[in-house]
Amino acid sequence: MAPSVDRTALRAVVRRELRTLTRTRVHLLLAGGFVLAVVGLVWVSGSTGFVPTVLSLLTPLEVLLPLLTAAFVSRAVLGDRERGELALVRTYPARVRTYVAGVYLGRVTALLGAVLVPLLVVLVMVALGSVESTFLVQHSGLDSPVLFVRFVVLTALFTAVLTAIFTALSAVVRVVRRGVAVAVAVVVLLVVGLDLLIIAGLATDLLPESALPVVLTLTPNGAYRSLVLETVVAPVVTSPVSAGAPLPAVLALLAWGIGSLVVATLAITGID
């Protein structure tokens, strides 16, 4: 198929995903709930300054983002399969990878809207609020909205990777009820399971302690955490931060994202 035709098909898939999401009440409610949760967390924590706010949000986002992404994405391909629309799509000349890319782009666009809006609201809140020197920011001059923007960019990258993971999950699972169970399991695995596995590996000497800085960056949550600590927090604190090297973390996130989309494409191509 000519590339121009693939672009038309890609736009069609993206448009369909966005229409579906914006017309589904539960997604709108979840997006609204996420805004309230993020803004409320910042309000309740009483954090002042950009970097302290990042630290207040980091762990909650590591939990909330997989949950929100699971709700937005885990039925994307699965729903099409359940209705028989996936079979219909495969009778058309459009490529499977175009369909997967369209589903991914549509879902990630909607998710980024839901995720970035509250973070930008928080940015404005902090900018307008009193920015006093805190125990973390030794020199208030170092605390900068640029660091918060960096955090927002990394959060967007993390969201994009999570979207790819749940797109793959949606393509691999074939039964809706099982899809819900697997989505919950993947959320648990992402939030605590993989870190626990690393700890278990250390405890049983399967992993050498020297490998810890790299191994910690190999999971999606670990890579996100590592990048935030290294590039947003470390520049403004006097005590050294050892959260893992940024390069392996970036590579790990890219591998999770691209690998997941490849898995999704192969899962659809190989169905009977």
Partner: peptide
Amino acid sequence: PRFRSRLTVTETLSFYADL
């Protein structure tokens, strides 16, 4: 056959037409 319930008839068919 079943289709996404919140899309209109035209939107549903336009999606397939663009493929």
